[in-house]
Nucleic acid binder design. Sequence first.
DNA 1: TTGTAGGCGTTATCAC
DNA 2: GTGATAACGCCTACAA
Lengths: 337, 337
Amino acid sequence: MAVSISDVARLANVSISTVSRVVNGSNLVNAQTRARVESAIRQLGYRPNPFARGLMLRKSEIVGLVLPDLHGEFYSEIIRGANVQARQLGYSLVVSSSRGGEESHSLLHAIKQRSLLDGVAVMVSELTDQVHELLTDLRLPLVLLDSDIEGASHDSVVIDQRQGAAAVVRHLVMRCGAQRVVFVGGLKTNVDTIARFEAYRGVLEEGGLRFSADDVYYLDYGYESAYALARREVRGWAGRGSALFAANDEMAAGILAAAAAEGVRVPGELAVVGFDDTRVARMTRPPLTTVRVPMAEMGARAIELLCERVSDPKRPAARVSLQPRLIVRESCGAKAG
Amino acid sequence: MAVSISDVARLANVSISTVSRVVNGSNLVNAQTRARVESAIRQLGYRPNPFARGLMLRKSEIVGLVLPDLHGEFYSEIIRGANVQARQLGYSLVVSSSRGGEESHSLLHAIKQRSLLDGVAVMVSELTDQVHELLTDLRLPLVLLDSDIEGASHDSVVIDQRQGAAAVVRHLVMRCGAQRVVFVGGLKTNVDTIARFEAYRGVLEEGGLRFSADDVYYLDYGYESAYALARREVRGWAGRGSALFAANDEMAAGILAAAAAEGVRVPGELAVVGFDDTRVARMTRPPLTTVRVPMAEMGARAIELLCERVSDPKRPAARVSLQPRLIVRESCGAKAG
DNA sequence: TTGTAGGCGTTATCAC
DNA sequence: GTGATAACGCCTACAA
C-alpha cells in the first residue's frame, strides 16, 4: 500500500491536518513544523492521492478535447495549441476523436457515463441529432469549436470561415482577374465546406460572375481524390481567367500535381488557391496562395475558455471569433496588394 | 450537489450495496430489484462519482502518452493509433509533449507529483539525465517508445531503425548503383538520427564505398532548413552515382524542391530517399522512395502493452520490435526488386 | 438475495 | 498554530 498522509503525520509527529496544510501551502503553519513535515514527506516519498483529493475538491485538473478525427495537420495543430495552453494552466489534456469505432467507444459517450474530466472542448464536423443530444446534457463545462448549438449555453471559439473564404475568392476575382472559379469542397455536409461554399458563391455574385453548379465538386478533403479528379477535369478547367478554390490545402496540392501531370500551367492557365495554410502550402510548386487558419490558437483559446469556465461556472458564455488571413503566394498569379 | 448512490438507494427502496451491485453488473441480484434500481438510476440521472470509485479501485482508466513534440505527422499518427487502441480498451488518453515550456510544466513532472493516470507511455528524443531520473521512480506502469533505459524494467516498443535505414541505403548502393551517398540527419544527438547514421555508415563499408565526414550533415528534421542547405550544396552533390539519404521525408522533400530550383534532376543526377513514409512522400515530385515506419501501430502497441501491464503488474517486461519497410517510388531511380 | 458497517485518503470545520 | 472529526461517494467483507 502506498504511503498516505497519516504516515507522514506519524513520522513528523503532527496531525494529518498539519500535513495537509503543508502540502497545500497554507501559510498558517510554523516554520519549524513545516520543515519537519516536509522532511518526512521527502523521506517517505509521499504523494497525495489524487482520488481522495478529487473527492473533496471535485476537480481532476484534466480537460478533454474531442475532434472529428486525429488525422492530418489541421487537427494535430489544434491539439498542439491545446496542449500548450492546458499545461500552462496546470491541466492535463485528454484527446480523442469522435469518429472511428462504434459510438459506444467515443470519448463523449464515456464522459457521459462517468468522467473525471473537469470539462471538455468539442469540435464536430457534422452536427447530427445524436451528437446534439449527447452534448446537451453533458453536465460538464463545454466549449464548442467551430460550431454552435442553438439553445444551449456554452462557450465557443469559431473561425470566421466566410470572411476567410470571401477574402481569397475576392483576391482571385479582383486581383487575379478570374472570370470563372471552380470550387472543390470537402464533404457536402461538412460545416466548413458549407460556409466556404456560401462565401464563394456570394463573392461570385458580388463580382457579377456567373455561378454554375457544374463548377462545384465535393470530395473528402484528401490529396488523392483531388488528384484523381483533377487528372480527369483539369484540362476542362484551364483557360484564360480560370481559377480554382479548393477548400483545403491538401486538395489544392493534389490538384497542382495533377495539373503538372496534365501539362496545365499554374498559375498561367489556372490559378489555384487552398485553405488552412498547413505545411503543404509551402511545399507545393508553385507555393500555394491560401487562407491561414490559426489552428494552434483555436486549440489554445478553446482550452483557455474551458479552464476559465471550470473555475468560474457562472461566468456568461463567451464566444471568441478568430480571423483567418489571406496568404498570397505564387499559385494564384498575383502579388499581394 | 449531484445525485449520489444513496439517493438512488432511497428512491429504489434498497440499500446502497444493492445499487452498487447493479451498477457494477454483479449477477447476484434479483431481476425485479435490478429493474427497480435501474429505473431509479435513469430517473435520477445518476452517474457514479469516479473519484470515489477510484479511491477504492485505484484505477482511473486514463493512461498518458508523452511525446517529444506534437508537431508533424509522425507524432500525430502515433497519437491517432494510440487513441484508437485506448478507446478500444476502455481507456482515455492524455497526451502531452515533453518539450516546450519549463520543465515544471511537463506532464511527466505533473505525473510525478500526483497523478490520476494508470500508466504512461513515453517517447523521448534525447535521454538526458533529467529525463532518466524522472522516469526511474515514476511508480507507474511505464512503456518506452523507441528507446530503452538500462537497468529499469519496463515494456517497450521500438522500431528497428537500423534495419530500415540499412535497407534503404543498401537499395541505393546495390540497385541504384550509388557510389557516393550523402547523409542528412536531424539533430546530432537525436537517437533516431544516430541509429540511422550508423546503419548508413555500416552499409557504406559493407559495400566498399568510401565514407567521408564531409558528406554528413545534421539539421533539424525540418523542410525549410533542408531546403536552404540543399540550395547551397545540391550542385556539389549531383553527379553520376550520387545519392542522398535524408533521415526523414520532410527534409527529403525540401531537398527535392531545392534540387528542382537549382536545376538538378532527380533521380537523374541525384537519387534521393527519405524516411518515415509520411504523407509528403507521396506528394513530392518525383514521389519519394522511403522507409515506412508503422507510426500508428507504434502508438497502438504502446498503449496495448501499457494497459496490459496496468491490469497485470506482475507480467514480465515485454519488448515489441516493429519492422519498417522499404517503399520504392521514383526518387531513387530504380524499381523495386 | 439483500443490508450493515468499515474504510479508502483527503480537505474543511471546528475547537483548543 | 495545531488537532479532532466529520464529510466526500463508493466498494466490499460479513452478517442476516
